[in-house]
Lab assay of single mutants.
Amino acid sequence: RIRTTFTSAQLKELERVFAETHYPDIYTREELALKIDLTEARVQVWFQNRRAKFRK
């Protein structure tokens, strides 16, 4: 699998949801994935990585 490059619009939306909750449920992730045209798996991994970055 190649590395996913996020558009600024996708990042803006991901960060907006992250500001609300660091642990979005499956429904939130799936809805977000559809909205920004990514797979739910990519959204899930983005949140994992974002939480790791947040803890640092």
Results as ranks from 00 to 15, higher is better:
7 T>V: 04
41 A>D: 12
26 I>V: 14
20 E>H: 09
32 L>E: 06
42 R>K: 15
30 E>G: 08
53 K>A: 14
56 K>W: 09
45 V>Q: 11
31 E>S: 13
51 R>F: 03
18 F>M: 01
25 D>F: 01
36 I>E: 01
6 F>M: 13
54 F>I: 10
27 Y>M: 14
14 L>V: 05
33 A>F: 00
1 R>H: 08
26 I>W: 10
7 T>A: 03
22 H>N: 06
33 A>W: 00
5 T>A: 10
56 K>H: 08
43 V>G: 02
38 L>M: 11
40 E>F: 03
50 R>Y: 07
27 Y>N: 15
27 Y>V: 15
8 S>C: 09
27 Y>L: 14
17 V>Q: 05
2 I>Q: 06
46 W>V: 01
48 Q>M: 12
19 A>L: 10
50 R>T: 05
21 T>S: 08
50 R>A: 11
5 T>S: 12
19 A>K: 10
5 T>D: 14
31 E>W: 10
27 Y>P: 11
17 V>I: 11
35 K>W: 02
19 A>C: 10
55 R>H: 07
36 I>C: 14
51 R>H: 01
52 A>L: 13
35 K>E: 04
21 T>H: 06
47 F>W: 02
24 P>K: 00
11 L>C: 06
14 L>F: 02
16 R>D: 10
42 R>T: 15
54 F>Q: 13
34 L>V: 11
10 Q>I: 05
51 R>P: 00
5 T>P: 12
24 P>W: 02
18 F>H: 01
36 I>T: 14
30 E>Y: 07
29 R>L: 13
47 F>E: 00
8 S>A: 13
56 K>R: 09
32 L>F: 01
37 D>M: 05
49 N>C: 08
17 V>W: 00
21 T>E: 08
41 A>E: 12
6 F>V: 12
18 F>W: 13
5 T>G: 13
28 T>S: 07
48 Q>T: 11
2 I>K: 12
17 V>T: 05
54 F>G: 09
3 R>M: 13
10 Q>D: 04
26 I>A: 15
48 Q>E: 13
6 F>Y: 14
33 A>G: 09
26 I>T: 11
36 I>K: 03
5 T>Y: 14
45 V>C: 11
41 A>H: 08
23 Y>R: 05
25 D>I: 01
1 R>L: 14
54 F>L: 14
9 A>H: 07
48 Q>D: 09
8 S>M: 06
32 L>R: 04
49 N>A: 14
15 E>H: 02
25 D>G: 04
27 Y>Q: 15
32 L>K: 02
56 K>T: 09
24 P>V: 03
13 E>H: 06
38 L>C: 14
40 E>W: 04
39 T>P: 11
15 E>P: 02
18 F>D: 00
54 F>N: 14
45 V>A: 13
26 I>L: 14
35 K>L: 06
47 F>V: 01
40 E>C: 03
27 Y>C: 13
46 W>P: 04
47 F>T: 02
41 A>R: 10
51 R>Q: 04
2 I>V: 11
53 K>G: 09
44 Q>N: 11
49 N>E: 15
52 A>Y: 02
18 F>E: 02
33 A>P: 00
52 A>I: 11
23 Y>P: 00
45 V>E: 14
52 A>K: 08
15 E>L: 03
13 E>K: 00
31 E>R: 13
43 V>H: 03
20 E>G: 06
10 Q>F: 02
50 R>S: 03
24 P>D: 06
12 K>I: 11
43 V>F: 00
43 V>I: 12
39 T>R: 03
27 Y>I: 14
45 V>R: 11
29 R>M: 13
20 E>T: 11
2 I>A: 13
52 A>W: 07
44 Q>H: 14
55 R>Y: 15
7 T>F: 02
13 E>L: 06
6 F>P: 07
20 E>D: 09
56 K>A: 11
22 H>V: 05
5 T>V: 10
44 Q>A: 12
37 D>E: 11
53 K>S: 14
23 Y>W: 12
35 K>M: 05
24 P>R: 03
13 E>W: 06
5 T>H: 07
14 L>P: 00
33 A>D: 05
29 R>W: 04
56 K>N: 12
48 Q>C: 10
38 L>V: 14
15 E>T: 02
54 F>V: 08
3 R>Q: 10
39 T>N: 08
50 R>I: 03
36 I>F: 13
22 H>P: 13
47 F>A: 04
44 Q>T: 11
54 F>D: 13
3 R>F: 12
1 R>I: 10
53 K>W: 07
23 Y>G: 03
26 I>K: 14
18 F>S: 05
39 T>L: 04
6 F>S: 05
39 T>I: 03
53 K>E: 15
45 V>P: 05
32 L>S: 03
28 T>I: 08
55 R>P: 11
39 T>C: 08
40 E>N: 06
14 L>K: 03
7 T>S: 11
15 E>S: 00
35 K>F: 07
42 R>P: 05
42 R>E: 15
55 R>C: 12
48 Q>L: 07
8 S>P: 08
15 E>V: 03
48 Q>A: 14
31 E>C: 09
41 A>T: 11
12 K>G: 07
32 L>C: 02
42 R>C: 15
35 K>R: 11
25 D>Y: 03
10 Q>K: 05
6 F>L: 14
22 H>A: 10
15 E>K: 04
53 K>L: 12
51 R>Y: 03
36 I>N: 08
11 L>R: 07
29 R>N: 04
8 S>I: 08
21 T>F: 05
22 H>F: 04
36 I>M: 11
36 I>R: 03
54 F>H: 15
55 R>N: 14
54 F>K: 07
38 L>I: 13
8 S>F: 06
49 N>G: 08
28 T>G: 04
55 R>K: 12
33 A>H: 06
23 Y>E: 06
7 T>G: 03
7 T>Y: 01
13 E>G: 05
